[in-house]
Amino acid sequence: MTHVVTESCIRCRYTDCVDVCPVDCFRAGPNFLIIDPDECIDCAVCVAECPANAIFAEEDVPADQQQFIKINAELTRKWPSITKTVAPLSDADDWKDVKDKLQYLER
């Protein structure tokens, strides 16, 4: 099983989760993070670190967020690994609680 980054991360890209990951399974895109499902060891350490509450165990991904399982798997082949915390996007706090952000995902 793996963990999945969902819609709440879009336009935020907080990286608090990156520093605690023991296997460096996060990948960074322009305005979103994903978890490489082949690298994730399902330790769940990242879940509590996410200020946007965007990370779920695959079996717990909400019904309206299921497409993010595929999105994480797809983008892991395109985006580079991120292993250190960087500043969130400049307007991350404004976007943290916004719903329906999929159209803003930059691939």
Rank of each mutant, 00 (worst) to 15 (best):
M1E: 12
M1A: 12
H3G: 09
V4R: 08
T6S: 05
T6F: 03
E7A: 14
S8E: 14
C9W: 07
C9M: 09
I10Y: 01
R11I: 09
C12A: 05
C12M: 05
C12P: 00
C12F: 07
R13P: 03
Y14Q: 11
C17I: 11
C17Y: 03
C17S: 07
V18F: 06
V20S: 00
C21I: 01
C21Q: 03
C21V: 03
V23A: 00
D24C: 01
C25G: 00
C25E: 04
F26V: 02
R27W: 04
R27T: 03
P30Q: 10
P30F: 02
N31F: 01
N31M: 02
F32W: 05
L33F: 03
I34W: 13
P37S: 14
P37G: 10
D38I: 12
D38A: 13
C40A: 06
C43S: 13
C46H: 13
V47L: 15
A48P: 06
A48Y: 13
C50R: 11
P51W: 08
P51A: 06
P51E: 08
A52W: 03
A52Y: 01
A52Q: 07
A52C: 08
A52L: 06
N53E: 12
N53R: 07
N53D: 14
I55G: 01
F56T: 14
F56G: 13
A57N: 07
A57V: 12
E58P: 01
E58D: 10
E59I: 07
V61Q: 10
P62N: 07
P62I: 04
P62G: 07
Q65V: 11
Q65M: 09
Q66P: 05
Q66H: 02
Q67A: 13
Q67V: 15
Q67L: 12
I69L: 08
N72L: 09
A73E: 11
E74F: 04
L75E: 01
R77A: 14
K78T: 11
W79Y: 08
W79P: 04
W79I: 03
P80K: 01
S81E: 15
S81R: 12
T83G: 05
K84L: 05
T85C: 12
T85L: 13
V86Y: 04
A87C: 00
A87P: 06
P88E: 12
L89C: 04
L89K: 11
L89M: 09
L89S: 02
L89R: 10
S90M: 02
S90T: 05
A92Y: 00
A92F: 01
D93E: 10
D94S: 14
W95T: 05
K96T: 07
D97M: 09
V98N: 09
K99V: 15
K99H: 09
K99G: 01
K99Q: 09
D100N: 14
L102K: 12
Q103W: 09
Y104M: 08
L105K: 07
L105P: 12
L105S: 05
E106G: 08
R107F: 08
